[in-house]
C-alpha cells in the first residue's frame, strides 16, 4: 500500500483505492480477511478513524463486508465489481489523459493507434 500525504486526494480515499487495488491485483482474494483498521493505522501512522472511513467507502460499494467481532472480509464477486467499475472509468481515466498529452506533443491520432497496435503485437 502506498500513500501520498501531499496529494490533494484525502487520505481516506487513498486508503480505499489502495485496498481496492490490492483486491484487483489479486493480493487480497475474495472471502479473505482485509487487514484490520488498527493494523493499517499502525502500519502507516494514521489515525484509525481515517482508515475506518476509507474502509467504510468500500463497505458501501459492497467490495468488503464486516463480520461481527472478527473483521472485514472481501466480498464474493468483489473482483468482478471492481473490474466492471474500472472498465466504466477507463475512458475518463486513461483515454482522456492519453489524448490530452498526445495533443500537447502534437502526436497524430493515427500515430496513437499505431502505437497501441504495436504494444499489442509486442506481447
Amino acid at each position: 500500500m502506498r500513500l501520498n500525504p501531499d496529494s490533494q486526494k484525502p487520505l481516506y480515499l487513498q486508503i480505499a483505492e489502495q485496498i481496492e487495488e490490492d483486491i484487483f491485483l489479486g493480493r487480497l482474494e475474495e472471502e479473505t480477511q482485509v487487514p484490520s483498521t488498527n493494523e493499517v493505522a499502525l502500519g502507516y501512522q494514521l489515525n484509525p478513524a481515517t482508515v475506518l472511513k476509507g474502509m467504510n467507502i468500500l463497505v458501501d460499494e459492497r467490495v468488503i463486508y464486516k463480520k461481527r467481532g472478527i473483521g472485514m472480509f472481501v466480498c464474493t464477486g468483489a473482483l468482478n465489481n471492481i473490474k466492471q467499475k474500472r472498465q466504466n472509468n477507463f475512458y475518463a481515466e486513461y483515454v482522456d489523459s492519453l489524448v490530452a498529452e498526445a495533443k500537447k506533443l502534437n502526436i497524430e491520432r493515427e500515430e496513437i493507434i499505431k502505437m497501441i497496435n504495436r504494444r499489442y503485437i509486442d506481447e
Partner: peptide, 9 residues
Amino acid sequence: IDEVANIIE
C-alpha cells in the same frame, strides 16, 4: 502541525 496531522482526528 505537519508531524501530527495524520495521527490526530
